[in-house]
Design a protein around this nucleic acid. Structure first.
Lengths: 358, 358
DNA sequence: CTGTTAGCGCATTCAG
DNA sequence: CTGAATGCGCTAACAG
């Protein structure tokens, strides 16, 4: 029924081993022989049996990319970029057999259980590499479990790369991670709030992400750093509201902030999506942006420049970081010193922030 | 080094066959025995070897989801929804072994070669099911190649589902597809243009998607239907510009439309992202929205309601469709009559459209 | 450069 | 309900 390596070998009049060698390309084969084999492959329309190959070689060509929310372009951009470095050489005739890797993205939905489940599934598939994107949950039990899983994955030969996620905060956990690209969330957040402070704002609300996420904590810390330096640290707790990284959360949280301080002159949001929700809430309450209230986001997603007014935010080079993670996962780029690289965050000042009314 | 089924069997004092049976759960096993085996699995921290299992069973637990652009929420939402119906039962202890499926999303980037490559890779992995999302390329050669691949996938036991993509337009191609969920792009587009017409617009520009894509064609046809019915069909060709489904394209195309007809009173965009680019171009040219020019999009992505003014658009139930596709792929939902279901598109009138100036 | 020989780890017959 | 035996399709040493 289904055509196997042996069929190809028979038709090309060579041994199965030779066919395997030309398909995998990592072994010298005479040009003429290779030609013959390739022709047989085409004639028979042969497709390599992945599981069999993985079983024999004790490794597969799967590269897993874990994301917290696939519907969020923040992750989509990174995942797409990583995939572009992995998904096969574009070359003509690609995909027939050969050693292309299969980049697959797995959506955890932010659920710790699903994250672990996917890691196990990837381990079960003997994945060649795993890329974890975005912030991590800070629950100690979960961190330990993830570190353990990653260690096993690494044991099994998988290369583990972190993208937009800080290095494992678990004793010995760092060993199993090939490389970590950490966003400078804290620095970016600090500069953003400093910008607002420089503009003259003093009553600044902060719409934070979900508690117990590294990204949330780091951004909040940066904000607090700036506020502390300005002698305003005392207001931070009262003017901070947590919620998921979505529009609704920005909307709700902003209404709450307005309740806590109707005289607010600026709202800093955990990310751009949340900022949009904040804008909606402010408009609904009759505040104009930025004349009455300034708004700022984080990430600089594509739609941020198109908001009205265009959103002041912090740009993260998501595509570049994702692509680099992809290359790291493929072993096609040198690992940074210490296995850790900091990815810079750049302040983008646009129309949504301005000086407060006097 | 790595613990195998045999190790578990030894520790549980049963045969490997029995362990296999409790893990796969599709065979009667005494409760006491199962208990013992499960304990051994836990003790040894055993993880099933996917490739070996797939090789022996001639099928894997991979479900592939193909998307044209993972950074576009249009696809992210569908993919996430599909995945939610597939990715394992959330239940405690999930992921250890057992029959969870692994939903994996593959980003073709809209490239026909990559689409084919991924299909081959999925075939190679003996995927249990494949979901293709979004519009298809209309090139006959490519359609034929895709249909052939899908037929082979189906032959190999994979369930093939189309989501947001019309049924295969290839003789006999329909047979290999289990189900197709087709968006009513044409009807939605027609109603959208009718809305503009009813408002009094007569000079309507259209920013279409890339040529040779089913989605592009169907939406354009709907637009043309409405224009024809209003006796305006003659202006359509001159006032239509094609481009990719991104913001830049909307921006560029709108400038071009303005050049062709400076008196334009409305711009209909291929999708919401493109519409945002159109808005940016119009503003830059000093046109206010909707007073000078009305703008409309398509898809109703989350950010559309937050644009300023909020975008008039056509809502597609992306999440629901994706979830249904996921269930169909898992065989957990009845196939619609004829294997084809039409997914309705609903007109959402918001602030970006209004009557033209008199 | 190429062929031969062994398994990889598991799901299945088939007996019991 | 459980155990023993067989082979899935391929890669990886070894020889030649």
């Amino acid at each position: 029924m289904t055509v196997t390596l042996a069929d190809v070998a028979a038709r090309a009049q060579v041994s199965p081993a030779t066919v395997s060698r030309v398909l995998n390309g990592n072994y010298p084969v005479a040009a003429a022989t290779r030609e013959r084999v390739l022709r047989a492959v085409d004639d028979l329309d042969y497709v390599l049996n992945g599981p069999a190959s993985a079983l024999a070689a004790a490794t597969s060509d799967l590269v897993g990319i874990l994301v917290n929310d696939i519907a969020d372009p923040f992750f989509g951009i990174m995942a797409g970029a990583a995939q572009s470095q992995i998904g096969g050489p574009e070359g003509a005739g690609a995909g027939r057999a050969g050693g292309e890797k299969l980049a697959i993205v797995c959506n955890t939905g932010g659920s710790p259980e699903r994250e672990l489940t996917y890691l196990t599934l990837l381990q079960r598939q003997r994945a060649a590499a795993v890329i974890l994107t975005g912030g991590a949950l800070e629950d100690p039990d979960h961190s330990t479990a993830v570190a353990a899983k990653l260690a096993k994955l690494a044991d099994g030969g998988a290369r583990v790369v972190l993208c937009g996620r800080p290095p494992l905060a678990v004793p010995g956990g760092g060993g199993s991670v090939a490389a970590a690209l950490a966003f400078d969330n804290r620095g970016g957040a600090r500069r953003l709030t400093e910008h607002l402070l420089a503009l003259g704002h003093r009553r600044i609300g902060y719409v934070a992400g979900p508690v117990e996420r590294t990204t949330t904590r780091h951004r909040l810390e940066g904000h607090r750093d700036a506020m502390d330096a300005a002698g305003l640290g005392g207001t931070v707790d009262r003017l901070t509201v947590h919620g998921p990284y979505d529009r609704q959360s920005g909307y709700d949280a902003t209404l709450e902030l307005l309740r806590r301080d109707p005289e607010l002159t600026a709202v800093v949001a955990a990310n751009d999506t949340v900022a949009l929700g904040a804008c909606a809430a402010l408009r609904e309450r009759g505040r104009s942006i930025p004349d009455d209230v300034s708004v700022a986001g984080f990430d600089d997603l594509p739609f941020s420049a198109d908001a009205m007014p265009a959103l002041t935010t912090v740009r993260l080079p998501l595509y570049e970081a994702g692509a680099r993670a992809g290359r790291l996962a493929m072993g096609r780029e040198a690992v940074p010193p210490g296995g850790i690289a900091s990815v810079p965050a750049e302040l983008m000042v646009r129309g949504s922030t301005g000086a407060p009314r006097v």
